[in-house]
Design a binder for these strands. Sequence first.
DNA 1: CGATTATCCTGTGCGC
DNA 2: TGCGCACAGGATAATC
Length: 283
Amino acid sequence: LPELPEVETVRRGLDHLYAGRTLRALEISGARTVRRHPPEHLQRLAGSVLVGAFRHGKYLLLHWSGGEILVVHLRMSGQLLAAPAGSPRPPHTHAVFSFAGQRELRFVDPRTFGELFLAGVQWTPTPASPSVSRGLPAELAHLGPDALRVGPSELAAAIAGRRAPLKALLTDQRLVAGVGNIYADEVCFWAGLRPQRPGGSLRPWDLRRLAASLRSVLEAAILARGSTLGDERYRDIEGAAGTYQFEHKVYGRAGEACTKCGQTVQKIKMGAKSAYFCPKCQR
DNA sequence: CGATTATCCTGTGCGC
DNA sequence: TGCGCACAGGATAATC
């Protein structure tokens, strides 16, 4: 579910509610929640203060006073929810972080695709290897630049000359980190480009519009605190829905009239995913 | 090298 | 009502 705007909204909530607070205890109950190292390793965070919450693409990075970095990815159905300690826990609560001041942070994830792990935890220590690449933990070194920090020329370089469809390039986290199915479609709409256009077919002005659209769509979506779709799976850390779904131009609007030109919004299959676009506004 | 496909899961909504 | 099936915001490994 969550793409960059939703993850950024959660990040801000984490920073606001938990930065500066001491983690008293943590429980990991989900069998698949921590899979890159033994779940017990997370216990070393107990007693640490959350220094701050950061984000790269769709990954959250929680920095602790002991120097540890807890990486969180919500994948398809994960949520981080703040709650008073002891209040009833929702179904599929796989991890609970208990902070000083009787506040809990729950990791809830029905589909169990989401994960938590401590960055840099190795099965066997590798003394000389640098654990940070481009300022990121080694586990995230494969990610491209964050979609909000990518420059127009950097974006153009990732797309120019590529045969793959524009949407596949935009959602390839190795090229640009943070764009998923919803925002790829919305960015393509604002850029006036069909999602199936080969990257290499884009002209310089197309690439400029694309870079501008990427930024403006993501910024507007963050202002709206993300998109909460019909299944209500995305909620911010305090349980509030986002409102950017009301501003969607094409995503999920197949068969409806384009708000700009009145043409019928089309839905096509691109690989396993659907893509939505306006055949008149997007070429 | 690049594009499809299968996989990990649960929940929901649809057609019959 | 109830059943089976398709589909869902993601990422990655395998396969052609």
